[in-house]
């Protein structure tokens, strides 16, 4: 069971959530012949092309207003899937996810259009977050400025495919951070920025928190989590291993990872 603190306002409640997603085209070697496929069809075995991944196996927690929560765990432990479920982008198969307002996920795989210039992607991103065209237009210079992609020349008018991975990650972060969110979910977005940008974005996360939102941060960098989050959740193979003050959780996690 999860402890409930009735004196505080919750923003995200995850109640025994299970998430299963299907992967198409995950074919094992040697199962690709038409004869093998036909045999599977006749014998009614699950087609090899479709595999089910049970990514989250019953997770419960409550996040409160004004909290910044770090999510740690080894690769493939279900951190990103968990964030997607909180954002309402992946439905839970069992259990439920409740949230106040519309949580927004900011991730490294947020698709922007690579053939279009940065400016236009900023505009598109703002519209996709539900801003009005006038609002979005007014925000563009501010976002470009914050992302700092124009520090080395006029990159904002070049197609995104010419950007380095660090630059596009910065632009993505700048777009999502331009709007006030009740709940902001950040997935490894700061990992590719340089130290100057990292400092600036950590400041922005603190500002967003001050505006009474909740921030979730997935990162493999312990220092980033230590500096921004006072609470952490450690996920391992779809289950919560620890949930509590960052220092305690990171200590446990560190001990586990060194094993």
């Amino acid at each position: 069971m999860v402890e409930i603190d009735p004196t505080r306002t919750p923003t995200v409640i995850v109640d025994d959530a299970h998430i299963i997603y299907r992967v198409h085209g995950a074919q094992a070697a040697g199962s690709g012949s038409p004869l093998a496929s036909f045999k599977r069809l006749v014998t009614r075995t699950n087609p090899a092309q479709v595999r089910e991944v049970h990514a989250i196996k019953g997770v419960s927690f409550v996040a409160y207003k004004g909290e910044a929560i770090g999510m740690v765990g080894s690769n493939g432990s279900g951190k990103s899937t968990m964030l997607r479920a909180v954002a309402g982008l992946m439905p839970a198969d069992r259990g439920a996810v409740y949230a106040s307002g519309q949580p927004s996920l900011l991730g490294v795989n947020a698709v922007l259009m690579n053939d279009l210039p940065g400016e236009r992607n900023v505009l598109l991103g703002c519209l996709a977050m539900g801003m009005s065209p006038a609002e979005a237009k007014a925000k563009v210079p501010e976002i470009i400025e914050f992302s700092g992609i124009n520090e080395r020349g006029d990159f904002s008018s070049l197609p995104m495919r010419t950007y380095s991975s660090g630059m596009s990650a910065r632009l993505r972060f700048a777009i999502s951070a331009a709007k006030k969110h009740d709940v902001l979910l950040i997935d490894e977005a700061l990992a590719t920025g340089d130290s100057k940008f990292r400092r600036r974005s950590e400041q922005r996360i603190r500002d967003l928190r001050a505006e009474a939102g909740t921030v979730f941060l997935v990162s493999h960098s312990e220092s980033t989590i230590q500096e921004t989050c006072e609470r952490s959740i450690w996920l391992e193979s779809g289950l919560i291993r620890a949930d509590g003050p960052t220092e305690d959780v990171l200590k446990e996690y560190g001990a586990y990872m060194r094993k």
Partner: peptide, 13 residues
């Protein structure tokens, strides 16, 4: 948790 969510007006994703 469900009641707690309902009390604070959180909606299911």
């Amino acid at each position: 948790l469900k009641e707690f969510a309902a009390r604070h007006g959180l909606h299911s994703a």
